[in-house]
Amino acid sequence: MRATRTAAAVGVLTVLAGTSACGLDGSEPHTVARKHSLVIGVKEDQPMLGFKRGGTYEGFDVDVALYVAGRLGVPRDRVRFRTTNSSVRESALASGAVDMIFATYSITAKRKTQVTFGGPYYVAHQDTLVRADATSIGNVRDLKGKRICEVTGSNSWRRVVEERRIAARPVTAPTYGACMDDLAAGKLDAVSTDDLILAGFAAGRGVRIVNAPFTDEKYGVGLKKGDLEGCELVNRAITRMYQDGTAARLLDKWFGKSGLKLTTSVPQFEGCS
């Protein structure tokens, strides 16, 4: 009799222990909301956005990432940055190599099937950069017959030539940095891509952004697919960043001298899914 009772008690205890353990573990384990430290993916070759200079990263994306991490309770010294190129962004999030991505990462319907996007923290627009003395180019339609930069692996030139059907002449270059040199050397007439990227290159080069935006590029915060809790917290952090004036200050810090029209009001969020 006593044996039966003891066995029953042990059985009950086991089940109870199991139940409570499930209750704790079941509540979204993969979230940036409750992490002690964070690994953040950024670009290393975009001046003023994500740029690696002597082992440290700097730029608007980096500063925004640090602000958001701080609002998630992770101070600067527990944040590690990792160069994450465009082609590996989805796999780096899926494998857990990085926890978040701040790397001029445009939100698109297709990417949303693989990634949960917080933000956008800024809506950039495709715009056009010309030499300061080229006054004949006022908007994208004026690129007809002009030589524009076609950067290998970038789709920006297609948006002019294929989507806008403007008969510009693409000239290939390996990077946007090389485009800038070609523009200065007179081998090109214009460079057309995201305005923040252009602004990053523009400072002190004798060039001008025409301020005629023709697309919306929603720069989102890449999170592991399904991390809704983290995504909601990231959105609250971005809301606060615009409310407390940090966003305006950071935009001015990195792009204030570029002559670009900046938006300092919070963007419309994509919604966590």
Binding site: L228, E232, N235, R236, T239, S265, V266, P267, Q268, F269, G271, C272
Partner: peptide
């Protein structure tokens, strides 16, 4: 409009 949209998202969260 972005703010109005975010209000619904945030309270929905």
């Amino acid at each position: 409009l972005p703010k109005a949209y975010n209000i619904t998202l945030d309270s929905g969260a």
